[in-house]
């Protein structure tokens, strides 16, 4: 059932993309193919495949290795995704150390650490990784707000 819904949603997306790709034309033709033939070819094959999946979804033959999702797990996954999005949003603003520390504390707590463990662990991870990457491996990382303190 899930397969069928997924294939159906995909089908709509592919059709929308075909409509979009139809308009891709170059003002000058240097070569016979042009920019839209290849994406259109791929998308039409995807449409055919998705149609087949909607009409005749695959049967589940082997037992699943993971237990099915329940409400609690879904809630946790949503929280985890929210934490990652917040981290991405704060990365430049707060700088690497602050945003990573906040993120690591939240994630550790989400993965069943105690409060003390996640607070200490999160800060250690953030500072440790900053030292490792910025000083040890020469990968530049943003300091954000902390840069003002340093100067």
């Amino acid at each position: 059932m899930h397969d069928r819904i997924f294939a159906g949603v995909n089908l709509l997306i592919y059709v929308a993309l075909i409509a979009l790709a139809w308009g891709y034309q170059s003002p000058f033709a240097y070569e016979p193919v042009g920019p839209r033939a290849y994406p259109l070819l791929l998308l039409s094959l995807l449409v055919l495949g998705a149609l087949y999946q909607v009409l005749k979804p695959a049967k589940q033959t082997e037992p699943r290795e993971e237990p099915p999702l329940n409400r609690q797990v879904i809630r946790k996954i949503a929280l985890c995704i929210a934490a990652m999005v917040a981290y991405a949003a704060l990365f430049d603003v707060l700088g690497f150390i602050l945003s990573s520390a906040l993120f690591a504390v939240a994630m550790a707590y989400l993965y069943d650490a105690t409060r003390v463990q996640s607070a200490v662990g999160g800060i250690v991870i953030a500072v440790g990784l900053y030292l490792l990457f910025d000083y040890g491996l020469d990968v530049p990382l943003p300091l954000g707000m902390l840069a003002k303190l340093g100067s």
Binding site: S100, F103, A104, M107, Y111, D112, I125
Partner: peptide, 11 residues
């Protein structure tokens, strides 16, 4: 433990 590993991997 996973709780230490996952944040590190994510970062």
């Amino acid at each position: 433990p996973t709780w230490a590993l996952v944040p590190a991997i994510a970062i």
